[in-house]
Simulated scan of single mutants.
Amino acid sequence: MQENLIQQVETLLREKPQLRPVEMADELKVTEWAVVSALPGELVHLIEGNLAEAILQDVAHWGAVTTIVERDGSIFEFKGSLPEGKPGFGYYNLMGEAGQLHGHLKLDAITHIALLSKPLRGKEAHAIVFYNRAGACVFKIYLGRDPQGVIYAHQLQAFNRLKGLGYAR
């Protein structure tokens, strides 16, 4: 890890705490993964990408979450339970019922996963973020909230358990 990048990220966190990692990456002219890897340990736990399927299988039992795909400034969100998936034809296939998320995830393209705990728009936020080998975010799963906007306690506990899968930087 470049010491200079760590210092730059620390400075941005201090001066512009509202920035999301993708915005920090744009400002620093590096990949989002490089920024996330340079965040302080209290904000992020890093996990190898080969655990993506196991994590997704676990999250399928958490209840309503927010799944986000962001491309070129456009943001697609799905709020609801992540359906269980199964491998087939080189993909991890999400086979939700009507009204649930459907998709085909190329999990062998996931090289890193971050458990990110960084406030978003002034509110506590926790996300599982999946990155490809180029350092770009493929998709994110944010913990769900009750009608009062409070993160579900059982999801926060499950998220914290996933931290045991992380590795030291």
Results as ranks from 00 to 15, higher is better:
residue 95 M to C: 13
residue 87 P to L: 11
residue 125 A to D: 11
residue 93 N to F: 04
residue 134 A to D: 15
residue 58 D to F: 05
residue 118 K to S: 08
residue 56 L to T: 02
residue 135 G to H: 07
residue 121 R to T: 06
residue 97 E to V: 11
residue 116 L to N: 03
residue 53 E to S: 06
residue 80 G to Y: 05
residue 139 F to M: 10
residue 126 H to E: 10
residue 106 K to H: 15
residue 114 A to W: 02
residue 136 A to S: 13
residue 109 A to V: 01
residue 93 N to C: 08
residue 83 P to T: 03
residue 57 Q to S: 14
residue 117 S to F: 00
residue 94 L to Q: 09
residue 92 Y to F: 14
residue 92 Y to A: 03
residue 128 I to K: 08
residue 63 G to K: 09
residue 76 F to D: 01
residue 136 A to W: 01
residue 87 P to Y: 08
residue 114 A to V: 05
residue 134 A to W: 10
residue 109 A to Q: 09
residue 83 P to S: 00
residue 69 V to W: 03
residue 102 H to P: 01
residue 134 A to N: 14
residue 79 K to Y: 10
residue 125 A to V: 03
residue 46 L to Y: 00
residue 93 N to L: 09
residue 98 A to Y: 12
residue 85 G to I: 02
residue 52 A to Y: 05
residue 98 A to E: 15
residue 79 K to R: 13
residue 97 E to H: 14
residue 72 D to E: 08
residue 96 G to E: 00
residue 62 W to E: 11
residue 109 A to N: 01
residue 49 G to N: 06
residue 93 N to S: 06
residue 56 L to R: 00
residue 70 E to F: 01
residue 54 A to S: 08
residue 89 F to G: 09
residue 81 S to G: 07
residue 63 G to P: 12
residue 68 I to F: 00
residue 136 A to G: 10
residue 120 L to N: 10
residue 73 G to C: 05
residue 80 G to K: 00
residue 63 G to A: 09
residue 73 G to Y: 03
residue 75 I to L: 15
residue 139 F to L: 12
residue 110 I to F: 02
residue 97 E to K: 15
residue 105 L to Y: 13
residue 113 I to R: 08
residue 117 S to K: 13
residue 107 L to D: 03
residue 45 H to P: 02
residue 81 S to F: 00
residue 93 N to D: 06
residue 54 A to L: 02
residue 65 V to F: 02
residue 84 E to T: 13
residue 44 V to F: 00
residue 115 L to H: 08
residue 93 N to V: 07
residue 108 D to L: 08
residue 77 E to G: 01
residue 97 E to T: 13
residue 101 L to H: 12
residue 99 G to L: 07
residue 104 H to M: 07
residue 124 E to Q: 10
residue 132 N to D: 15
residue 127 A to E: 13
residue 133 R to I: 12
residue 115 L to R: 07
residue 118 K to T: 09
residue 117 S to Y: 00
residue 119 P to F: 02
residue 54 A to H: 02
residue 137 C to T: 15
residue 118 K to N: 05
residue 51 L to H: 06
residue 114 A to H: 04
residue 100 Q to M: 14
residue 87 P to D: 08
